[in-house]
Amino acid sequence: MGLIESTCKTIHVGCRQKHLRWSKNERPVLTISSGDVVTFDTVDSSNGQIGKESDSSVINSFKTELADPAFGPVFIRDAEPGDALKIEILALETADWGWTAIMPGFGLLADEFPDPALKVWRLEPGSSCAQFKEGVHVPLRPFLGIMGVAPGLDGDFSTIPPTDAGGNIDCRDLTVGSTLYLPVQVPGALFSCGDGHAAQGHGEVCGTAIETPMKATLRLTVCKDHPWVTSPHFQTAPRAYPKSVVADKGRYAAMGIDADLLEAAKKAARNLIRWLVATKGLSRSEAYMLASVAGDIQVVEAVDINYAVTMGLPLNIFV
């Protein structure tokens, strides 16, 4: 697809303008000027393999190599290595549905959850929450899991793991009003995005969030001579509490302690799942998925030989 020249205005990248690799040789679908606003229509992270009517049988034929498409890339004039690309997140609009799944062989506790599971969510327009099951409502906090620029290295790289150039960073703080800075590694930056999430906990422990198609509106600006930006940096907007927000009821957290940080994280997630099963009437698979979309994993102690990691949930999701 050829380059589309533009002046300073709102420009569009469609849902068919996608790729499954990070490469400085990926041909741009759009050329813009610094400060232009671009809208992106993205499909979900399954790349259309999972739909509104799907059940867990679809996971048996799921092709990982088709997952996590990125939409773009966009060439930004005057962007050069040593600069930073500033991405202002202006608007995010989810579809009216989403999905969360347990994929065999994937996730923090993959060895303990060998069977596939799928939850298809209904996302009501204008609603601040989505129902997980009767009595469990998860606050919606849309963001893009993938925002990245082309790497400076030669070769083709998967869109699944994050890198210093961004990509599949799955940072739930990058919602509307936040600003992301990425290190420009090639001329034009070659920015792409995708992987819409309606909600996710810190850690995304089962491997998926509430995955959903999304329309994103972003402003892309070149920040000249920012050599200190060598990995993704971001700034969040001041927190605003809408009238519909559910009252804070505190959090419940389980701790994992181990000399290995990954093992400590696994223990924390495992212990929270045990609590959910024991006290909230959830199956282990339900508890794992709920922890992934609404739970936060945090390192609370890192200096006394063993690591202490917690995984917690806000208690106001239980209504």
Score class of each variant (00 low, 15 high):
Phe62Ser: 02
Cys223Val: 00
Asp44His: 07
Thr230Ala: 09
Ala240Val: 10
Glu124Tyr: 05
Asp296Trp: 06
Asn47Thr: 00
Ser54Ala: 15
Ala101Val: 13
Leu218Arg: 02
Cys223Ala: 10
Ser45Ala: 14
Val246Trp: 13
Glu134Val: 15
His197Ser: 14
Phe157Pro: 12
Asp258Lys: 07
Thr31Asn: 10
Thr212Arg: 13
Gly201Tyr: 10
Phe62Cys: 01
Leu66Arg: 08
Ile32Ala: 06
Ile32Gln: 02
Thr310Asp: 06
Ile76His: 07
Asp156Ile: 11
Pro238His: 07
Ala259Gln: 13
Glu53Lys: 14
Phe113Gly: 04
Ile89Trp: 09
Leu85Ala: 06
Pro28Tyr: 08
Val138Met: 01
Ser192Glu: 04
Ala150His: 10
Ala302Met: 08
Ser33Asn: 08
Ser178Asn: 06
Ile11Trp: 14
Leu109Gln: 02
Phe318Val: 08
Arg251Gln: 11
Leu109Lys: 11
Tyr181His: 09
Leu30Glu: 02
Ala308Asn: 10
Lys119Phe: 03
Lys249Thr: 11
Gln17Arg: 01
Ala308His: 08
Ser23Phe: 09
Val309Asp: 10
Ser57Phe: 04
Pro238Ala: 13
Leu272His: 09
Asp164Gly: 12
Thr31Tyr: 05
Ile76Ser: 04
Gly188Leu: 05
Gln298Ile: 08
Trp275Gly: 03
Asp173Thr: 12
Phe157Gly: 15
Val58Ile: 15
Ser292Gly: 04
Cys193Val: 03
Val300Pro: 00
Phe234Val: 01
Thr179Glu: 07
Phe318Thr: 13
Gly177Ala: 04
Cys171Asn: 14
Met255Tyr: 13
Gly148Trp: 03
Gly207Ile: 11
Leu118Gln: 07
Gly203Arg: 01
Leu182Glu: 03
Cys171Gly: 06
Ser178Glu: 00
Val245Ser: 08
Glu26Thr: 15
Phe234Arg: 04
Ser34Asp: 07
Trp22Leu: 05
Leu140Arg: 15
Lys18Gln: 12
Thr39Gly: 00
Ala269Glu: 07
Gln49Ser: 09
Trp97Lys: 08
Tyr241Arg: 10
Asn60Val: 08
